[in-house]
Design a protein around this nucleic acid. Structure first.
Length: 192
DNA sequence: CCCTGATTCGC
DNA sequence: GCGAATCAGG
């Protein structure tokens, strides 16, 4: 794949929107996030609201990267800091425009009330099954890729989140995606 | 371990 | 110019 005008345009657009390099890479297809980042730099549009190590106004000693063509010491400076801080939500893209609305990537549908829905029996059974082996994690344990399906009454101690690995891109695991996103057709008159 | 962007450098 | 490998940080 090469960087056609269209693809570059998409790249610029998405990057401007604060999309991550990997997301852009997925969207474009045929390229890795490295390719995207490389291109971004070549295009000159690099820093925006960077997630972590941003290029600060200051100079970066940066040490020596690595002897490219020779032995790799693989020396890993181990940080002893217990990294407890995990982001629950994606970092909102920082906009320099004062009156600009923030783009929040979390526009996912909220979990429907299980009781308020007519759900296909198979999906239901699947969910019940899954809930047995659910990780039963707490709110603080939720990450980008843990199923955020709530179980139980939030007002009770008997409340937890599924916590199983999510189905790519979705906020829920396989089973819960099944009940969360019901096709219109499958929920038609069960009662009426 | 998952992710993020940054950099280097052989191609 | 391109992007894999690597680094550095969360």
């Amino acid at each position: 794949m090469s960087w056609t005008d269209e693809r570059v345009e998409t790249l610029k657009k998405m990057w401007g929107e604060g999309q991550s390099a990997s997301q852009i890479a997925k969207e474009l297809g045929g390229v890795t996030r490295n390719a995207v980042i490389g291109k971004v730099h070549r295009l000159g549009l690099s820093n925006r609201a960077t997630t972590g190590t941003a290029a600060k106004p200051d100079a970066k000693p940066k040490a020596k990267p690595a002897p490219r063509a020779e032995a790799k010491p693989k020396a890993k400076a181990e940080t002893k800091e217990p990294v407890i801080m995990q982001t629950v939500a994606a970092a909102p893209p920082k906009s320099t425009l004062p009156a600009r609305k923030q783009i929040i990537p979390a526009g996912q549908p909220l979990p429907p009330q299980p009781s308020a829905n007519e759900i296909s029996p198979e999906a239901l059974a699947k969910v019940n099954e899954v809930e047995k082996k659910a990780k039963k994690i707490g709110l603080m344990e939720l990450t980008e890729r843990t199923c955020k399906w709530p179980v139980g009454d939030p007002a009770t101690e008997d409340f937890w989140f599924c916590g199983l690995p999510v189905k790519q891109g979705k906020p829920y695991c396989e089973a819960h995606v099944g009940v969360a996103f019901q096709p219109m057709s499958s929920r038609r008159d069960r009662r009426r």
